[in-house]
């Protein structure tokens, strides 16, 4: 079935590629955001970000086109604010907003058009094929798709033995189906922002982003400060890496775990390795995610201790390393 997405759909699911396509076709240009009548959109975008950062969900859905545009503007603003914790919280809030709409839509069992839209969303965004039962009350997902996600939930009811399972499918209610992908939604929005390259910003957006950054920065001061100066061992590893020289496995491990520990996003960590002679983006990403505890292993790896690094000849201590036992403490003591 071909799917026609209305503006209402795009306003609820503005992260679909069709939303950007829609704006392009309507002949919209970024410079229009400097027009006085666009102030409303920028205002909404700022609200949407602030709501997200305070752990709330932005509820507005009164004017479809406005909200499509608002979403795209928030992405640009969050990118331009450039603070990882802001992005994280914002992405989570967008995920929760979408979760609400998805659940509502899944509950509308008898609307074929709706069902087609949802299959598309689940398929396009999460690579998850969902199907409905004949009576339309339940959703079917493949056992392997289910296990890959549910096994990271802790509640007993998510153990597969407590599900209706038949012929390779697990049967779920609407809320459960959405719950299965909720985390991926936030990850996807996060990735979207990271992958984005900023256009030359209209003045109105730039100003608003700057104000927001100034407002939000104090909340994250400590973090922002603590990552400006890397410990000597880490600095050294980065230098070797940037020269395109081969870095031993143990040094890569240190670099990646350190960067994860200071909450550097996976994408940026992967970036750091791109000068390595044997760089392969997919594999590096897999490994970093593994260390972060999101792929393959459940344990999050910690940064090796200074003692360990010393025995591996990776320590390049300076007097600032005074009395620390793990690189992660560097620059966080006293002062």
């Amino acid at each position: 079935m071909s799917i026609r997405l209305g503006t209402g759909d795009l306003a609820r699911y503005p992260f679909l590629n069709e939303a950007g396509e829609y704006l392009r076709q309507s002949g919209f240009g970024w410079e229009e955001l400097d027009r006085p009548d666009m102030a409303d959109i920028i205002q909404r975008a700022a609200e949407r970000i602030e709501a997200g950062v305070s752990g709330k969900v932005y509820e507005k859905l009164d004017r479809y086109e406005t909200e499509i545009l608002t979403f795209l503007v928030t992405l640009i603003m969050v990118k331009s604010i450039g603070m990882e914790p802001v992005l994280k919280k914002y992405a989570l809030a967008e995920a929760r907003r979408a979760e609400k709409f998805l659940t509502e839509d899944l509950r509308r069992q008898n609307d074929a058009q709706r069902q087609a839209l949802l299959s598309k969303i689940f398929g396009d965004l999460f690579g998850l094929a969902i199907d409905t039962t004949e009576d339309g009350r339940l959703f079917k997902v493949k056992v392997t798709d289910y296990l890959a996600r549910s096994s990271h939930f802790h509640e007993q009811e998510w153990k597969m033995i407590n599900r209706l399972v038949s012929n390779g499918n697990v049967y779920l209610g609407p809320d459960e189906t959405v719950r299965l992908v909720r985390n991926e939604l936030a990850v996807m929005i996060n990735g979207r922002v990271h992958a984005m390259s900023l256009p030359a910003l209209p003045k109105a957006i730039k100003e608003r982003s700057d104000t927001l950054r100034a407002e939000l920065a104090p909340r994250y001061e400590y973090r922002a400060h603590s990552v400006t100066e890397y410990p000597p061992c880490v600095k050294h590893a980065i230098e070797v890496m940037n020269r395109g020289e081969n870095l031993p496995h143990s040094a890569r491990l240190m670099l990646a775990t350190y960067m994860l520990a200071i909450d550097k996003p996976v994408d940026e960590i992967v970036e750091m390795f791109k000068n390595a002679p044997d760089f392969n983006e997919r594999i590096t990403r897999y490994q970093v995610e593994h260390l972060a505890g999101s792929k393959g292993s459940r344990t999050k790896y910690s940064v090796p201790s200074c003692d360990k690094l010393r025995t591996e000849n990776l320590c390049f201590a300076t007097k600032d390393c005074d009395s620390i036992i793990n690189p992660i403490q560097f620059g966080r003591r006293r002062k």
């Binding site: 296990l147 292993s297 459940r298």
Partner: peptide, 10 residues
């Protein structure tokens, strides 16, 4: 692709 956690559930 299933990790050991998923296999354990299985």
């Amino acid at each position: 692709p299933l990790d050991s956690q998923a296999r354990s559930d299985l």
